[in-house]
Nucleic acid binder design. Structure first.
Lengths: 340, 340
DNA sequence: CTTCTTTTTGCAACCGGTTGCAAAAAGAAA
DNA sequence: TTTCTTTTTGCAACCGGTTGCAAAAAGAAG
């Protein structure tokens, strides 16, 4: 039968040590004015009693909760497991605690802001490649330090963004396909509302505009998921002549597409080329072996955490965009470049 | 330039409405003793000022933070993305906020307890199929309501457990393989320290003990991951005669094993059978099509949240185990049962 | 219009800490 | 030993709310 013991408070420790509460408080604060003797006495009493300070109570006076809102709506893309893993670890390393907020049902920025303000989070990380910049702006407008990771950047940012230039990634994919000599190429995006899809598509189209001889087409899957990619590719197969190669907006879409192609008896890369995006763990599985464009997830997250920490000290820090290069990861789903 | 406005407090609202702070506090509390007129007056002032109550400050007096620690060390198994998605949503639905704790680096129970107690979480959900029951017990001993989801259960529990009977799952797998007429079977587990691996192996062995004619062997992958499954199967192939079918401790191991088998030119299910565990989304992808045993994740999580909510009202609630049945999901990686 | 109930309101103490300020203690200099 | 500095300590107010209690207001009954 577990006893319901009242938690040990500062006052209990003060009583036991026979000192004032301020002394105890100071003993637990680095750099406070306390003698060694006092500190030892307090620490003794505290450990006797099993005391640990209440972070929430102290936040009342210090104005710091060390709570960071981690907001996302990407709970279906396997890549985000890694994203959560890294964010939680790196935040923990800095002594911060992530307060998770799942936006899958509720996308309203103001509701999200209100909910997180109730818990007086010190800052917020919006980890999403689909939410518009306005979403993150709502936090800034509410006076909450915010970093938008994996989000759309602006050259005149009013909110901190850390990620990649998705339109450059689109260009990179297009360049690669053109270099491989494909005469017709397709873009198979995720949902058209996702900023990452829009940006990758824009870059892809820009690059192709330089090559009027290459035929192009595009379509959008309903979702960043295996099923959506598979369904979309099945539709393309049914609807008529395929492009020679496709840039899929995400690896998970690519893998769905590959499965549809295999079912249709089409060989990749002989009959058709596929290039994905994200370089998720599965992409390098030998039975998938997907050529793709990878983004440096760990660096992006590391940098995001660094930035939010910096903002805790200077909430009005001048807005900044941090971009990292994407990398082509060549595997087995594109045909080799033609010999010149 | 964002202005650094001091957040609006209860007192501000009270001043503006010309009433006492208690009146404002009560206006924001359901079922408190307030007249309609007063409530309207306060609400007007509050919305003029954009006030929303500070959940942390109120937690000081009420003793409720509505914070739930969500503790896990499974940040590499794709199935856990779904687990996090469901937990965060269901907790949010109940007005609770998940405080995430990643145990990947730090496995010490007492440290975890201390860290979460600092934030006075109302309860903790330990979502892990690998941590021993003692881990969860540490929370209970510290007086923190705890539910261990996906964990090992005991018939004399001292901590709430919601999940499946992993040893029954092992028996189920063994029965299935025997029924299919395999003359030799293997168990390929995850890390030997994981309770789920131990339990599934125990059940598997128990069932096989009833069939002395069936040859058996077992081994353990270093990790619940594709790479570990692949490496382990490669080792098995290299080391000598394979069993006719394997029960892999997790789908992601199975998929790794499948990839190794494909490389070795072995056809599944013709040359060798594989049965996995978890029925993760990928298992039903057409290019994988894995026969597996599924656990009812959504029900487990729903029930876990229900239970933790109940414990908030009654922290000394008598410990209870809630088990859900696993289900065979037949796909294409086992040969058909022999005709009688 | 009284008198008695019931509802609504404000006062003030409290939740678990922090911190500015002044008093006390310790140390240095004379 | 006295005087001046510097360090250490405790007092008390405060952070943003909640809540028991008693006073005030409103309503019901006579």
């Amino acid at each position: 039968m577990p006893m319901m013991t009242r938690p040990v408070t500062l006052k209990d420790v003060a009583n036991r040590a026979g000192v004032s509460t301020s002394a105890v408080s100071r003993a637990f604060t680095d750099g406070a004015s306390v003698s060694d003797k006092m500190r030892r006495k307090v620490e003794k009493a505290a450990s006797d009693l099993g005391y640990s300070p209440n972070a929430l109570a102290s936040s009342l006076t210090t104005g710091r909760t060390k709570l960071i809102g981690l907001v996302s709506n990407n709970f279906h893309n396997p890549i985000f497991l890694q994203v959560f893993d890294l964010f939680t670890r790196k935040l923990q390393d800095k002594g911060l605690r992530p307060l998770l907020m799942n936006l899958s049902d509720e996308q309203d920025a103001l509701t999200a802001v209100r909910r997180l303000k109730q818990y007086s989070v010190d800052g917020v990380i919006v980890a999403s490649s689909t939410l518009p910049p306005e979403f993150s702006k709502a936090f800034r407008d509410a006076g909450v330090p915010v970093v938008n990771s994996f989000g759309r950047f602006s050259t005149t940012p009013d909110v901190h963004v850390v990620g990649v230039d998705n339109s450059e990634c689109g260009r990179m994919a297009a360049r690669e396909l053109v270099a491989r000599g494909y005469a017709s190429v397709g873009f198979m995006g995720g949902p058209e509302t996702a900023t990452s899809t829009q940006d990758r598509f824009r870059g892809f189209s820009q690059e192709l505009a330089k090559h009027p001889d290459v035929a192009r087409r595009h379509s959008f899957a309903s979702d960043y998921s295996f099923d959506a990619g598979r369904a979309e590719m099945q539709r393309l197969i049914a609807d008529g002549p395929l492009a020679e190669a496709y840039f899929c907006g995400d690896d998970v879409l690519s893998i769905g597409a590959l499965s549809a192609l295999a079912d249709a008896g089409l060989n990749v890369p002989r009959d058709i080329g596929i290039i994905g995006f994200n370089d998720m763990e599965m992409a390098r599985w030998e039975n998938i072996n997907l050529t793709t464009i990878g983004q440096p997830i760990e660096q992006i997250i590391h940098s995001s955490v660094e930035l939010i920490v910096a903002m805790l000290d200077d909430p009005n820090r001048y807005p900044e965009v941090r971009l990292f290069p994407c990398k082509m990861v060549e595997r087995g789903t594109l045909r080799p470049a033609p010999k010149p």
